[in-house]
C-alpha cells in the first residue's frame, strides 16, 4: 500500500534550544489507524503539529501524500491544510455559531459552493450522529457531542488524513468510546487516522498500530500494540 505519511530523519529544535524531535523515521500507509503514545514532553504534540504544518522541521523531510511539506511555500500551506483534518482536545468550536454553522464555516472559508456545503454538512452530521442537534449552540451540548461536531468539521472536506491530538482528553470514559466509534467509522471509509493519546483503555481495547515516542525518538512501533505505560 501507499505511503500517506513518510518522515525521513525529522528533527525539531525550538528557538529556546529544546530538542523536541531527534531524528524520526517512519511511514504510515494509506488507510492505517495509528496511536501515538508516550509520556508528557515526549514530543507527541510537536509530532502532530508537524503533520499539518503548524511547525516546520529544523531538518529532514515530511511527505504527506507524496508531497514534501517541509519545503512547502507559505502561500501553499492553506491549500495543503484543506487535505488534512485536525481534531483537538479542546474542540475549538465557535460559541456563537450553531452546530450546523460551525461545520459549514470550514467549507465557507474555502469558498465551497453553498449547495454542496449544505449537502455535505448534513452528511457529516449524520455520520457523527448529530443530525438532530444542528440548531443547537455548543454550550447546549455535552463534551462528547461537542467533540463530535469538531470531528464532523474536520472531515467535511474529505481529507485523506485525520489527525487527533488527545481527542478524548477532556471526556469521561463512556463518551470516549462513542468518539472512538466515530473515528473507527471514518477510518473504515479509507481515511488515514493518526491519534495522539494518553488513554490506556482505548489503546489496549481497540487494537491498532502503536508508535511510542520518548525524548523525541521512536522507541517502539508495533502493529496491534499495547499502550505500555501505567495510566
Amino acid at each position: 500500500m501507499d505511503d500517506m505519511i513518510l518522515m525521513q530523519n525529522v528533527w525539531k529544535a525550538y528557538s529556546n534550544g529544546v530538542m523536541a524531535l531527534n531524528g524520526i523515521d517512519l511511514s504510515v500507509k494509506q488507510g492505517e489507524f495509528v496511536y501515538i503514545v508516550g509520556p508528557s514532553g515526549a514530543g507527541k504534540s510537536t509530532f502532530i503539529k508537524m503533520i499539518f504544518r503548524e511547525l516546520k522541521p529544523t531538518r529532514g523531510k515530511i511527505f504527506i501524500n507524496h508531497k514534501n511539506i517541509a519545503t512547502l511555500r507559505e502561500r501553499q500551506v492553506p491549500y495543503f491544510r484543506r487535505k488534512i483534518g485536525v481534531v483537538f482536545q479542546d474542540f475549538r468550536l465557535l460559541p456563537k455559531l450553531t452546530v450546523y454553522e460551525n461545520v459549514a464555516f470550514a467549507l465557507e472559508v474555502i469558498e465551497e459552493n453553498p449547495k454542496a456545503i449544505k449537502k455535505r454538512v448534513m452528511e457529516v452530521l449524520d455520520l457523527v450522529g448529530l443530525k438532530h442537534k444542528l440548531r443547537s449552540f455548543p454550550d447546549q451540548l455535552s463534551g462528547g457531542e461537542q467533540q463530535r461536531v469538531s470531528i464532523a468539521r474536520s472531515i467535511c472536506n474529505r481529507p485523506p488524513v485525520l489527525i487527533a491530538d488527545e481527542p478524548t482528553g477532556n471526556l469521561d470514559p463512556e463518551t470516549s468510546w462513542q468518539i472512538m466509534d466515530v473515528f473507527t467509522r471514518i477510518n473504515e471509509q479509507g481515511t488515514t487516522v493518526v491519534m495522539a493519546t494518553h488513554n490506556k483503555d482505548i489503546v489496549n481495547r481497540i487494537r491498532h498500530r502503536v508508535i511510542a515516542l520518548e525524548g523525541g525518538m521512536v522507541v517502539r512501533d508495533e502493529q496491534e500494540g499495547e499502550y505500555g505505560y501505567e495510566a
Binding site: P78, F80, R92, L94, V109, I110, S154
Partner: peptide, 16 residues
C-alpha cells in the same frame, strides 16, 4: 482570534 485560528486550520488563505 479563535475564528481566525480555525479559519487558518481548515485552510482559509491569508487573503480571505
Amino acid at each position: 482570534r479563535r475564528e481566525i485560528e480555525i479559519m487558518k486550520l481548515v485552510g482559509a488563505t491569508n487573503a480571505f
